[in-house]
Design a protein around this nucleic acid. Structure first.
Lengths: 123, 123
DNA sequence: CGTCGTAGGTGCAACATACAGATAGCGGGT
DNA sequence: ACCCGCTATCTGTATGTTGCACCTACGACG
């Protein structure tokens, strides 16, 4: 039970993190913590740092990004991530998929509106 | 490893099945197998029957739908599902959440288009 | 009788995500 | 010197959602 985060709510697409990170990296090289903060500008707050770093490493292994340790002048060392050509391609594909999702969801909504009308007469 | 079903592609929202079934049921009482076939009209092909029936039973337990066995004249017995008021409410909420998802995805796309422009100059 | 179409169902493994820490460097305050 | 808070990365584990592979059962048709 444990009242989980929120009674099974419908949420963002599966595997949404990857396209988000790729987009941010397409806008410019960055390191993990920076990306973590910028995620909120994409409409996601409360990103799990663990998941984010794991995702970055997975993308590194998949060759979508290239990483390099950057000795910091102050504070702990940071790993900067740079998008590869393959990553850019992947981003393009993902953007297409997301557009497809939007189309599907629009169809859903149109259909929902139709039946909702029947319940709430024109005011 | 097992060659993963499909290179981790980005897909539809989490828990999308529920809102879909609720919408179809809002259009009229139906039984599982019927819903299974109608799912394709919502843009989802290849729905897993197991998952669908499980989802229906879960919604029944949650009070979103009411089910009744219908003795069939020919073929196996079928269980018909009817939307409850609570289910209708839930559908409304879910539709709102999905609209929110679309808004988020639109923002994503706008931002993607901006950087894509830089790579493909105006032709 | 075998097989097809209808109808509902179980069990399990893989995967994605959430939660909860651990570690570690640096700077500021006391 | 010590702790605290901020930056920064990472691990371990529980939980939830999905997909895959099956199984049962009824009726009709050849």
């Amino acid at each position: 039970m444990t009242a989980r985060r929120e009674e099974n709510a419908v949420g963002l697409p599966r595997n949404y993190l990857r396209p988000c990170l790729l987009l941010l990296l397409a806008e410019g090289t960055a390191h993990g913590y920076e990306l973590l903060e910028q995620m909120s500008t994409l409409g996601i707050d409360r990103v799990d740092p663990g998941g984010l770093y794991r995702c970055l490493r997975a993308m590194d292994e998949d060759g979508l990004v290239r990483s390099a340790w950057e000795p910091s002048t102050s504070g702990p060392a940071r790993r900067t991530y740079e998008l590869t050509d393959e990553g850019r391609q992947w981003l393009h594909v993902a953007a297409g998929s997301l557009a497809e999702v939007v189309r599907t969801l629009d169809r859903y909504h149109a259909r929902y509106a139709e039946i909702a009308e029947r319940h709430e007469p024109v005011r």
